[in-house]
């Protein structure tokens, strides 16, 4: 399931829903991303997340479908917020349920790695009166490439 929304989400309820009523599930793995108040040595007052409505949902659905193609999964969930977010706020949640833990761990990591380098979101960090677009990290691209090159695949 894909949810792109401005409002916050309830981590516990969302993660619980992945195994609710399904006793085939042997494990649930979840990752949530939060807004930090410090980037390097720079304090962040708040951040604004922009996205490309339409393409975002399409792109996340493709990433989710690819995870189901690669691993035997019961359910998957991707929630990504946009708009103004304060330090400590939740930005993103990816969660996966599966019969066994290995698929859950791997698919969860795959979802966040792919999301970070493919889903059309852009972070604008605001400090004092200044705002600065966040620069993409090579390490994120490398994390995604490792899946494409196959050395993390089952």
């Amino acid at each position: 399931m894909i949810k792109v929304q401005q409002k916050d989400f309830n981590y516990s309820l969302e993660v619980a829903a992945l195994s609710e009523g399904n006793h085939d599930v042997g494990g649930v793995c979840a990752f949530s991303g939060l807004v930090r108040d410090l980037v390097g040595d720079k304090h962040i007052d708040y951040m604004t997340l922009e996205h490309y409505p339409g393409m975002t949902e399409k792109c996340l659905a493709e990433i989710e479908a690819e995870a189901h193609h690669r691993w035997p999964l019961e359910k998957t969930l991707i929630i990504h917020r946009y708009g103004r977010l304060e330090p400590g706020d939740q930005i993103v949640l990816v969660a996966v349920s599966s019969v066994h833990r290995e698929a859950a761990f791997d698919a969860c990591r795959f979802l966040i790695d792919f999301l970070k380098t493919n889903a059309p979101f852009w972070k604008l960090e605001c400090t004092g009166g200044d705002s600065k677009w966040v620069t993409a990290k090579d390490t994120d691209t490398q994390a995604c490439d490792r899946w494409l090159n196959g050395d993390k695949k089952e």
Binding site: H80, I91, V92, K116, P120, F121, W133, V134
Partner: peptide, 10 residues
């Protein structure tokens, strides 16, 4: 057609 910098979500 859309133009944008490398994405920075997550």
């Amino acid at each position: 057609v859309a133009f944008f910098p490398p994405v920075t979500g997550g």
